[in-house]
């Protein structure tokens, strides 16, 4: 104790240094989470844009109008970036059931899914049918 009283400056400095180390660890931790969240944010936004753009392209080039799952799947696979999976659920007055098109048969693990919806007017054989497509995109 006497030794420590003699070295008050040293003890104070040691205490402060420990405090700095602790605070730096806290800072690094929060910086890590900050960067990780930022990265996730960008990836999620990109997935959302990919889903929206692919659906818009398939709507514009008439692929969605066919309501043919094989053609739509082929259309998706042609432009979907390889790191994502996509599913479309098409609800059309031309079909009595919901048409499901997906690039992966089921989700194998819990991943974040982004989703959106677009309406379209399916023209088949001179008749037109109001339809809606819900798209879902998730990482592989």
């Amino acid at each position: 104790m006497i030794i420590l009283i003699d070295k008050k400056g040293f003890v104070l400095s040691l205490d402060a240094a420990v405090a700095v180390v602790l605070v730096t660890i806290i800072l690094m931790g929060s910086a890590f989470f900050f960067l990780k969240t930022n990265e996730t944010f960008i990836v999620n936004m990109q997935m959302l844009r990919v889903g929206s753009d692919i659906t818009a392209v398939l709507q514009a080039d008439g692929t969605l109008d066919t309501l043919d799952p094989l053609q739509i799947k082929s259309g998706i696979e042609e432009i979907l970036p390889i790191s994502y999976n996509m599913r479309m659920l098409i609800n059309s007055t031309a079909s009595s059931s919901i048409i499901i098109v997906e690039t992966e048969s089921a989700q194998t693990n819990k991943k974040f899914i982004v989703a959106g919806k677009r309406f379209f007017y399916a023209v088949q054989g001179g008749n037109a049918y109001p339809s809606a497509v819900t798209y879902e995109v998730w990482p592989k």
């Binding site: 929206s52 818009a56 709507q59 514009a60 677009r118």
Partner: peptide, 10 residues
């Protein structure tokens, strides 16, 4: 944006 543009197209 999706709902609006798709409805306008339709």
């Amino acid at each position: 944006y999706d709902l609006d543009t798709s409805l306008q197209n339709s």
